[in-house]
Design a protein around this nucleic acid. Structure first.
Length: 552
RNA sequence: GCGCCCGUAGCUCAACGGAUAGAGCAACUGGUUUCUACCCAGUAGGUUGGGGGUUCGAUUCCCUCCGGGCGCACCA
């Protein structure tokens, strides 16, 4: 019996109590099944009696007793206890609990997947770095977290579009061009330009490929260097992200919004809804109608579109592509955008609570030798995605970055991360996977065909086996909540718990027969349990984009 | 000044409004003749920044104060 089945059973029980008028409740709340922290509280628990007591006008413990009387008939349930104010603590019989292993193996890589978000089309935009330099540590966090969110959403049945917005227009790009140009001509780079070593490298590369550039006028050179540098830098970002296992479905460039007429179209939509006005020669959007602190300029007095105009057009464009929910993953330094993005949605006639979701990620701080390294793209003193991967590898980088909720600032201690052993829970989880793989390999070498043998779940009776099964049963709920809350770190934390449950089981319960001992029901059942655990670890690591090695 | 986020063990961090607030690291005590010791079992460590409120029940929700981070362009 899985938690989902138990939940259903309780619901049926409640319905029958209501039908027989022993209980009077108009609406049955969602019945949540938890795995109690304390072992004394059984395999699963529910607070449903506490939830129902008030509307029913009864004492919670009395409601609990009614449920116990009705549910005890159920064959898979060994024991139900009423605890504290009215919690129901369930203990399943071992056969009923152990069946889960078979379920997991049958569902294989689909175990944990649900259709919770079926029918929703969700667009998740993240990173969206300027194509004027390498991706830094902050971008790397979004690469790992954004991709992991996309994965849990997809596992929960949503149609997901991963999107990257390329800011290939405007003054930052011009400064980029001027910087490369200066570097190519061995001149001082403008103070507000880009000073990283990569600028000089780009300049050298471009001159080598197109030496005639240097014969152009300075103003033409700047444009040429800008365009060549942009192409190269974007390509570089794409390659790096590819290696980082973060693949985007859509790359939308700001220029294309202008060339395709999307900007005019977006403006027309906003005008239609009546929130556009003229003042001091400029065209404004009245975002203050919807909670923004000030109105925003769409077209400057000199006739140029603002960056904000592109943003609004981009939103309208995304919606027109059928995206119901538009998630933006932004750094804390952009949190001022939240109200304005929501206002844009409202100005376009949408519901900001439904169509827009902004996730603000706190910045990543890095300590090296106990001192903070300030990250600044402009100054050139930056730690890039590649630097991090080079130090710790893609698996450890992705895992470490997805292990924490994004709304807390993250401090990476590079010295710890580079040590490869300390404080890197990814190794702990991966090791559990490799360890199980070794056990299963040995079983095959010994000629134990556990997959074709009779599985008797009733022999899984030890405390460690029950704990492990309990942990395995939680996975679907964890994935669902990670998707609904957009918090993939829950998957990582769960995997650590699961790995602990496995290691604990492993040291307490011998799986394979010793020496010439015979293969028993217990051997087969434990191998099933191992295989189920391995499957769940693999499924969980997949959701984080981390590999599950067979050997370590 | 206005606004957003954060404050939990010595450190880094968890905890759908639920039961005795949990892990890892660091400290201490034990454990392996056999399947991967990159492991396991245990001890110690807390007024969840302070104070109010909401309720059966608050780390979680509301108010306020304190402390820290960040943002408030006809820049992008």
């Amino acid at each position: 019996m899985t938690p989902e089945e138990l939940s259903k059973t309780i619901k049926e029980s409640l319905e029958s109590l209501i039908a027989s008028q022993k209980l009077e409740v108009s609406v049955i709340p969602e019945i949540k099944i938890e795995r109690p922290k304390s072992k004394e509280h059984g395999d699963f628990s529910s607070n449903i009696a506490l939830m129902v007591a008030k509307p029913a006008g009864k004492n919670p413990r009395d409601v609990a007793q009614l449920l116990v009387d009705d549910l005890s008939k159920n064959p898979g349930i060994k024991k139900i206890e009423i605890a504290g104010p009215g919690f129901l603590n369930f203990t399943l019989d071992s056969a009923s609990l152990g069946e889960l292993a078979r379920t997991i193996i049958e569902q294989s890589d689909k175990y944990g997947h649900t259709d919770l978000l079926k029918g929703e089309t969700i667009n998740i935009e993240f990173i969206s770095a300027n194509p004027t330099g390498p991706l830094h540590l902050g971008h790397t966090r979004w690469a790992a977290v954004g991709d992991a969110i996309a994965r849990v959403l997809a596992a929960s049945g949503a149609k997901v579009i991963r999107e990257f917005y390329v800011n290939d227009r405007g003054s930052q790009l011009d400064k980029f061009g001027a910087s490369i140009c200066a570097a190519a001509n061995n001149e001082a780079i403008p103070e507000d330009g880009y000073h990283g070593a990569y600028v000089k490298e780009l300049a050298t590369e471009i001159v080598k490929e197109k030496p005639q550039i240097l014969k152009l006028s300075k103003s033409e050179q700047v444009i040429e260097f800008r365009e060549e540098g942009y192409k190269k830098q974007l390509k570089q970002q794409q390659n790096v992200l590819d290696d980082f296992r973060t693949h985007f479905d859509t790359w939308t460039s700001e220029r294309s919004l202008h060339s395709s007429g999307a900007v005019e179209k977006g403006l027309a939509v906003l005008k239609k809804h009546g929130h556009v006005f003229e003042l001091d020669g400029a065209t404004w959007l009245r975002t203050t109608d919807f909670g923004d602190d000030k109105d925003r300029v769409l077209i400057k007095a000199d006739g140029e579109f603002t960056y904000f105009a592109s943003d609004t057009a981009y939103y309208v464009d995304k919606r027109s592509r059928g995206n119901d929910v538009n998630i933006y993953l932004l750094g804390a330094d952009h949190h001022g955008y939240v109200n304005r993005l929501r206002a844009v949605a409202a100005c376009a006639g949408d519901n900001p609570d439904k169509n827009v979701e902004v996730l603000i990620g706190q910045l990543v701080k890095m300590l090296k030798n106990g001192q903070e390294v300030r990250l600044s793209k402009r100054a050139g003193n930056i730690i890039t995605l590649e630097d991090l991967v080079e130090e710790v590898g893609t698996d450890a980088a992705r895992y470490t970055l997805t292990r924490y909720p994004v709304d807390t600032p993250l401090t990476l201690e590079i010295d710890l991360l580079t040590s490869h052993t300390n404080d890197n829970p990814v190794f702990y989880v991966q090791y559990a996977h490799a360890r199980i793989s070794a056990v299963i390999r040995s079983a095959l070498e010994k000629g134990i065909d556990w997959q074709k043998s009779n599985f008797n779940p009733a022999v899984l009776t030890t405390q460690q086996e029950a704990e492990l099964l309990g942990a395995l049963s939680e996975f679907p709920r964890i994935v669902s909540s990670a998707a609904q809350l957009r918090e993939p770190h829950r998957v990582a934390r769960y995997l650590e718990e699961l790995a602990t449950a496995y290691h604990s089981f492993y040291s307490a319960c011998r799986v394979l027969p010793m020496n010439d001992d015979a293969v028993t029901d217990e051997t087969i059942a434990r191998l099933m349990l191992c295989a189920a655990t391995r499957q769940v670890i693999k499924n969980g690591l997949d959701l984080l984009g981390v590999s599950a090695p067979e050997k370590m």
